[in-house]
Each structure stands twice: as C-alpha cells, then as structure tokens.
Design a protein around this nucleic acid. Sequence first.
RNA 1: GGAGAGGUGGCCGAGUGGCCGAAGGCGCUCCCCUGCUAAGGGAGUAUGGGUUUAAAGCUCAUCGAGGGUUCGAAUCCCUCCCUCUCCGCCA
Length: 425
Amino acid sequence: MLDPKLIRNDIDNVARRLKVKRFDLDVAAISQLEEKRKSHQVETEALQSERNSKSKSIGQAKAQGQDIAPLLAEVASLGDRLETSKSTLGVIQKELNDLLLAVPNVPAEDVPAGDNEADNHEVLVWGDLPTFDYKPLDHVEIAADGAALNFDLAAKIAGTRFMTLRGDLAAMHRALIQFMLDVHINEHNYEEVYVPYLVNRESLMGTGQLPKFEADLFKINDARELYLIPTAEVPVTNIVRNEIIKDEDMPLKFVCHSPCFRSEAGSYGKDTKGMIRQHQFEKVELVQMVRPEASQQAHEELTQHAENILQKLQLPYRKVILCGGDLGFAAAKTYDLEVWLPGQDKYREISSCSNYRDFQSRRMQARWRNPGTDKPELLHTLNGSALAVGRTLVAILENYQQADGTVRVPLALQPYMQGKQELSF
RNA sequence: GGAGAGGUGGCCGAGUGGCCGAAGGCGCUCCCCUGCUAAGGGAGUAUGGGUUUAAAGCUCAUCGAGGGUUCGAAUCCCUCCCUCUCCGCCA
C-alpha cells in the first residue's frame, strides 16, 4: 500500500509515476472520496468526543447522587447521529481502502519505461554458452523418456502440471536444495527458517497477493480459509507483521526452502510441456528486512547472492532489470535472473529479486525503532529466489547434457551426491 | 475429537459497568545521592489514526479478533481465533 499521506498531498505525482507501471490511478475518484472521508471523519470524531464527555459527566452526576435524567435527555439524540455518521464514514473508508489496496507500488526512479518482458534492460551477461556438436535436447527429451522424470504418472496421481522424479534425478533435486541453503547460511549469513505452507488471508494481504490475485492461489476448501503458499515470501515476510524490530536486530536475513503452489490461472497454453511451469515446485527463498536507507544496497547484495548460486553451478545467465510494465504489483524494483536453456535456445527466468521498500511493510505494519527518532518507522522488505529449484534442475540437465544421453553433475553439487559425477537415464 | 482454565502495556500482574490507556512490580532511559561494588531517592517509558506540512496542542481508536447491550464496556452477552492442563488419537 502506498502512503495515504502521499496520495493525499501529491496525488498527481503518484499518478505520473504509476504510469511507468502502466497503471491508471483514478485521481478523481480518490480525491473525491478523500474529501468526503475527511469531513465525515472530523464530524464523527467530534460527535464521539461529545458523547465521551457527556457520558463522563453522567457518571460524575450519578456518583454525587444527582438526578441524571436531564443529562440523559441531552444525550438522547446524540447516539443516533453518531451511529449514522459512523456508518457513513465506515462505508467511505472501506471504499477508499479497497481502492488503495488495489494500487500497485510506485516504481523506483531508475526503473526503465516499457510495456512488457521485451522492454526489460539487460544489466549483465555471465558465463559462456555451452556448445554442442548435435542439436541440444530439452530437459523433457533428456529425462522424461525413462522413469526419472514422469508427467503422465503425476497426471494420474494429481493432474496436469505436476511431475514425479525418481532415483538420481530426485536426489539431485534434493541436493540442489541442500547446496543452496548451505551457501546462503554459511557464505551469505542468512538464518534458516521453517514456516507454515498454509497461510491465512491477512498474511497474503500483507505481502500483496490479496486482494488482487486470488485466482493465482490454491485455497483450502474448509472453514479456516487457508491458502497454499505461492512462495515462501508470504510466510517469511509476515514474520514481522505487526512487529517493531529493535535496531540492533536489523537487518533480518532469512533463507527458507519451501514448496510453492500456484494455480497459474490464465497460463494455460504457456510452457505446457516440461517442468518450467508447475502447480507445485520447490524454491529456496531469501528474505530481508532492512533499514529504509539500506534497502537499495541490500537489493544489490541479495541479487548477487542469487547470482552466486548460478555461478557456483557454472550456469550461464543474464541479469535484467524489469521495465515498468513487467514489474510486479508490490515491487518498486526487480532484477530477474535468466538462465540459459540450450534446449529452448533462450534465457528463462530462474530468479526474481525485488525491493518492495515500505509497500509490504505498510500493509503489514512491520516497523523498526529508529534510534535517531526513537519512533517506530516502516522498515523495507526484499526477497528473491535463490533459486527456483525445478528450473535449476532443468538448467543443469540442458547445459550439462552429453552426446551419449548422460548428464554431468556440476562440480559444486558432487559433494551433495556422494561424489557422483554423471547421471544416466 | 472430549473435558476444563485462560488471553490486559517490553515482561509479570491487578482491575468485574463511569474517577481506567489502564494500579503495583520488574525491566529500560534520564537525573540525584553514594569514594569501588551493592543499595537508595526522583522523573519518564504503548501503538495506530485524524486535525492542510512539521512540532506543540486538541482529538479518535486500541485490554486476542469481530459483533451486540448501554448515555458509558478491559469489565456484561454472542461468535470466532489462540494458549495452557487432562483424556483420546497420532508422525
């Protein structure tokens, strides 16, 4: 959520900046509602104040044994007026709030203009693309012939957009998770957390998935109204919801492995083949809560932490900064890391690292105590995949494939696989 | 799943209709006293919002959450959530 004060005082500027994100802020509707809100709130609070003081004097009169009937008469009509005023205010506030909850974050100053993926700017390219003396296979051709990777089996068990892994491939999948966690914990100084995979509405509101993107989520069909997490970002970031973090505990740096569940409504027809787009996948997620002035620097570092995984695995990739039109709802700025997939002959997203600034914090009331002012202030949140495990597996299969149909195990991963150097299918 | 007890400020804990945003204690901050240590005295110490910006002032809300009763609710009623104890079940 954007700062209501900013929207009140500088709405045209906010609208202008949101244009970069291809979002049309309804300035007229908001200004009008805001005006109504103000007058009704002032009126309601005045009535409340009056009622409070009258009630107090009734109490005092009663304590002194005086007749309170005249006072009661005085207050009689107050209740109704207050009731009316309150409910009108409630309606206005809800309307305004619903409107504001649907307004995306303002992009950072250095976010390039653009409509979609095609307009993202390349920041760097890393690694040499592998060369093959045959047409490189895609991961499905490499692994799905045998039992190692099986979509039909998963379809029987669950449905489309699921997969099963068996044997060495399942082990490599697990090894990747372990490897990534170890690097982030030991080299990048993150604290590992384990969190619920089912979360409530408030948590999803906090990070911005709700109310706008309900269709992308799997919802549990019972009275508890829980949702399967689409990313560990949701439970991990919500650790600080309604909290005031001590300055000496900042910044908080969490790493979390979790499964992710996405309904991917509207994605049908895209990536129907293979494990690129699944309803369930594993991810190792980095989350940071930092002092506001530190978030830009933290964003660069966090992205570098994700890049380090790709570099250790010797996977060629490029880093792009998302243009306004491609930027997510809650993000102020995002770097995507795209890994090279020889089977597709292109770069594909494997990580997305975002700075949310105070957008999520404001929704969550996540604060830190600024020692300069000694007051609670909104902190900044960031997160990034480091990395999406399934897509990393795809990248290894395709980049490390050999003419005889086997796949080499990246050097960094071998200690996590009992020294195994090669997978065959 | 069954039975019971609870949820109050950073923590402990009082409060069962008005004088309560909340006693008292602990902790923390500042000051005083004291040649160290220990002890003692005083003051302060929740969060969010509104009031055209900031500060002050004024004001509203918040005692797990949401409704209700009442002129007035931490306190009474209803629903939900959570915690604890015992029994059952269980990885």
